[in-house]
């Protein structure tokens, strides 16, 4: 059980964080006060070419020096600072949130076709695996994740989320059941431009995680949602699948349906299931995934978790509850319930 919401303005018109804070706080029943978070795209225009690395430090005096050194070895720290926070009575400060604006040196991985992304991915994986009191939980350009253990409004006020502006927002209110509530375990999960919020429990996690690990990804956050971000990165960025086909890998049609398809479509869907079987996500889930140029929502193949979509002009909303969408935008029209396993996609206009 969790509450999720996402909004994209396809015309890139910016919204501040106060609306999504209100919407997420409405879905209180879906959380337990053990984790909430927000992702915002377009929030760092002054550093838009740098990777914004958000880090949780355990004890900043002990751990920060080592991370600084690692980052300098792989590129340039253009700017870094503590993420501004304001203490809240109901939120216990466990980590110090910090942000780096980082420019990797492509020469350090000159053999790669996407050296900068690969350097940052490797840094995230190695820093988080070593568990030396630093956790990089956000690593995209001109975007950032803000999360902690607490209720949605407390986490929002802690980070002063209303002070950030962006054209795409995700929000998540957590009720943890299979892993402990901790700051790193709150959603959204992020890798490079990919962010994920998730409601559900992926019963195929053991298979998905082992599959993704054989491609060099390391799951470090003890929760099944992380694997979704990595699967997207693998299928869309590395294997170059169009998003709708990547979705079919994660939530494919049943064989019964595939058997009834026209030959060409049947061949394609069979090939997807054969090739990407270990990426199939089983069990109940509703997820919203974001990238700088799009937002996408999808549920599992038999829709064991709710998902509602709404549109108003250039804005597309996806959420666990219609009420949350209406809280953000009372004028919303075209409210619909997406079919099980079929994605709802909103893209930024070019």
């Amino acid at each position: 059980m969790c509450g999720i919401i996402g909004v994209i303005d396809r015309g890139r018109k910016e919204m501040d964080g106060s609306l999504i804070r209100r919407a997420l706080s409405l879905m209180k029943e879906r959380g337990s006060g053990e984790g909430a978070g927000y992702a915002v795209y377009g929030c760092y225009p002054e550093f838009k070419d740098c990777y914004a690395l958000h880090v949780f430090f355990d004890d900043i005096h002990v751990t920060k020096g080592a991370l600084d050194e690692t980052l300098r070895r792989w590129g340039e720290i253009v700017h870094d600072e503590e993420i501004p926070t304001r203490d809240q009575p109901n939120l216990r400060r466990v980590h110090t949130p910090w942000r780096y604006f980082f420019r990797p040196d492509p020469k350090m991985m000159s053999w790669s076709t996407s050296p900068e992304d690969d350097i940052v991915t490797n840094l995230v994986m190695s820093v988080n695996t070593e568990k030396k009191g630093a956790l990089i939980f956000s690593s995209g350009k001109n975007m950032g994740v803000f999360k902690a253990s607490g209720w949605p409004e407390d986490v929002a006020d802690f980070y002063r989320i209303q002070d950030y502006n962006g054209y795409l927002w995700l929000g998540h209110n957590r009720y943890p059941t299979n892993t402990p509530g901790w700051w790193g375990g709150a959603h959204p999960f992020n890798l490079l431009g990919w962010s994920v919020v998730h409601n559900g429990e992926i019963t195929s996690y053991g298979t998905n995680q082992r599959y993704i690990q054989s491609f060099g990804y390391h799951c470090t956050m003890f929760t099944d949602t992380e694997v979704v971000a990595y699967l997207f990165d693998l299928l869309v960025r590395k294997h170059q699948l169009p998003e709708d086909l990547a979705m079919k890998a994660l939530a494919p049609p049943f064989w019964d349906e595939i058997d009834r398809m026209e030959e060409k479509e049947r061949e394609l869907d069979t090939a997807i299931r054969l090739t990407y079987g270990p990426a199939l996500m089983n069990g109940p889930f509703a997820i919203v995934v974001a990238r700088p140029d799009m937002m996408l929502g999808i549920t599992d193949r038999i829709k064991l978790r709710p998902l509602v979509a709404g549109e108003n002009g250039k804005k597309l909303y996806i959420s666990s509850e219609e009420a949350a969408i209406r809280r953000m935008d009372p004028e919303v029209g075209k409210v619909s319930m997406p079919r099980a396993g079929y994605p709802v996609i909103g893209r930024v206009e070019s």
């Binding site: 019963t203 195929s204 996690y205 298979t207 082992r210 299931r273 079987g277 270990p278 089983n282």
Partner: peptide, 14 residues
Amino acid sequence: GINSIESLRGNRDR
């Protein structure tokens, strides 16, 4: 909670 055999395969967590 698994409706497809490929999600059982290698799923040592279960």
